[in-house]
Computed example of a mutant assay.
Amino acid sequence: MSAALPRRLAAEFLGTALLVTAVVGSGIAAARLSPGDAGLQLLENSVATMLALGVLILIFGPVSGAHFNPVVSAASWWLHRRGADGLTAPEAGLYALAQVSGAVAGTVLANLMYALAPITRSTQVRTGAGLWLGETAATFGLILLVFALTRSGRGSLAPAAVGAYIGAAYWSTSSTSFANPAVTIGRAFTDTFAGIAPGSVPGFVLAQLVGLVAGAAAVMLFYPKPTAGATALTASP
């Protein structure tokens, strides 16, 4: 039987919080350790993020599915809405609330660890067609990867595969692959290396939603039905 909903929501909150703490905290550390070298800063930030993501999926996957991302939760609902597995629409909404609040909490924690104000308005403007296209591509690839694994019975590979994908997408997409509305919102509350100006958030989130739709369509094309033994991205039985 899957974990009770309150436990799953707590796992999504804490997992997303720790993920964003890793993203923002490593960004702050990178800027301090490697001032003036943006490439090295991005390398340090991306390595810390991909490793943290893999570990957090291992920790929380058996409890909540380790979504940490509203578009993953939305895809879980949509792709399994006709079956008994997957999230219901209300559950997906509650997952999103837990993820967004966790992302903000993670940013606050990272700011405080580095003796910064708990909440600061980011001034890092990230806008333009190229960046939006990068976010669409990053989110498309993430959705396709996650559900290709789960629908083909290879969900155990998710910690390594998702971490590796995000690490690669940091470097291959123009936007450095936020690919997550909750993380995007959380990063608006830090005026540091990983921040995004609040005015840039809507464009990123809209691009992520486009990537969600395109990714879900690709999953339905290539993996129209889960293979025998495959499970939805919720909690382990």
Rank of each mutant, 00 (worst) to 15 (best):
L14S: 12
G15L: 03
G15T: 06
G15A: 03
T16V: 05
T16P: 03
T16G: 05
A17Q: 03
A17W: 02
L19C: 02
L19R: 02
V20H: 05
V20W: 01
T21I: 00
A22N: 09
A22R: 06
V23T: 09
V24M: 00
V24C: 00
V24P: 00
G25A: 04
G25Y: 11
S26D: 10
S26I: 10
S34G: 06
P35Y: 10
P35W: 13
D37H: 14
D37Y: 07
A38W: 08
A38P: 04
L40W: 09
L40G: 04
L42R: 15
L43N: 04
E44S: 14
N45G: 01
N45T: 14
S46P: 12
V47R: 00
A48S: 14
T49R: 13
T49D: 06
T49L: 11
T49V: 10
M50Q: 12
M50D: 07
L51C: 13
A52R: 06
A52E: 12
L53F: 05
G54N: 13
V55C: 09
V55T: 15
L56K: 01
L58T: 09
G61Q: 08
G61S: 13
P62Q: 08
V63H: 01
V63L: 14
S64W: 08
S64Q: 03
G65S: 03
G65W: 00
A66N: 03
A66T: 06
A66G: 06
H67R: 03
H67D: 06
H67Y: 01
N69S: 07
V71T: 15
V71P: 01
S73E: 14
A74C: 03
A74S: 10
S76E: 02
W77C: 10
W77A: 08
W78Q: 08
W78N: 05
L79W: 10
H80S: 14
H80K: 11
R82L: 12
R82Y: 09
G83S: 15
A84C: 01
G86A: 04
L87I: 09
L87N: 05
T88Y: 07
T88H: 08
A89M: 14
A89E: 04
P90G: 11
E91N: 12
A92F: 11
A92G: 13
L94R: 06
Y95T: 04
Y95E: 05
A96L: 05
A96T: 15
A96H: 07
A96S: 15
A96D: 09
L97Q: 13
A98Y: 01
Q99C: 12
S101E: 00
G102P: 04
G102Y: 01
G102C: 02
G102D: 04
A103I: 12
A103W: 01
V104M: 11
V104A: 10
V104W: 00
A105Q: 05
G106C: 12
T107D: 04
V108L: 11
L109V: 15
N111R: 08
L112I: 11
L112D: 09
L112R: 14
Y114V: 09
A115P: 01
L116F: 07
L116V: 06
A117R: 14
A117T: 09
P118E: 10
P118W: 12
I119S: 06
I119A: 13
I119C: 03
T120P: 00
